[in-house]
C-alpha cells in the first residue's frame, strides 16, 4: 500500500466514526496515530475530492457561526470499501509480522 492509498484508508477510517470537516480529519489522523502519521493538509483535499468523485464519501456545506463549512461523511459504498481495505491491510500486517517473528506468529 503506497502513501496515497494509505491516506485514503485513514480518511475513510476517520469518517467511519462520524462526519467531519477537513481540518478535523487531519487532526484525527495526527491524534489517533500519536503524531506518527501526519496528513500533509495540501494532499488531504485532493484525496478527499477523489474519494468524493468515486462516491466513497459525500460532502455538504453547513453554515456554522457565520462561516460556511464543508462536512464529509462516509457513504455505504465507502463503508464497504473501508471494510475491504481493512481486511487487506490486516492481512498485510499479519504477513509482515509473521516474517519478522521468524514464522512463529
Amino acid at each position: 500500500m503506497n502513501a496515497r492509498e494509505q491516506l485514503r484508508l485513514l480518511i475513510l477510517a476517520v469518517l467511519d466514526r462520524q462526519p467531519e470537516h477537513g481540518y478535523a480529519i487531519a487532526q484525527a489522523i495526527n491524534t489517533r496515530s500519536e503524531g506518527l502519521l501526519r496528513a500533509r493538509e495540501g494532499t488531504l483535499y485532493p484525496a478527499l475530492h477523489a474519494l468524493e468523485a468515486e462516491g466513497l464519501i459525500e460532502s455538504q456545506e453547513h453554515e456554522v457561526a457565520g462561516r460556511t463549512r464543508r462536512e464529509y461523511r462516509l457513504t455505504d459504498k465507502g463503508r464497504a470499501a473501508l471494510a475491504r481495505t481493512r481486511r487487506d491491510w490486516q492481512a498485510q500486517v499479519s504477513a509482515v509480522q509473521a516474517v519478522l517473528s521468524g514464522g512463529k506468529a
Binding site: 481540518y23 493538509e41 483535499y45 462561516r67 463549512r69
Partner: peptide
C-alpha cells in the same frame, strides 16, 4: 474556487 475555499477554511481552523 473549491480548492481555495477548502484550504482557507483549513488554515482558519488551524
Amino acid at each position: 474556487t473549491r480548492v481555495s475555499r477548502d484550504t482557507l477554511d483549513h488554515l482558519h481552523d488551524a
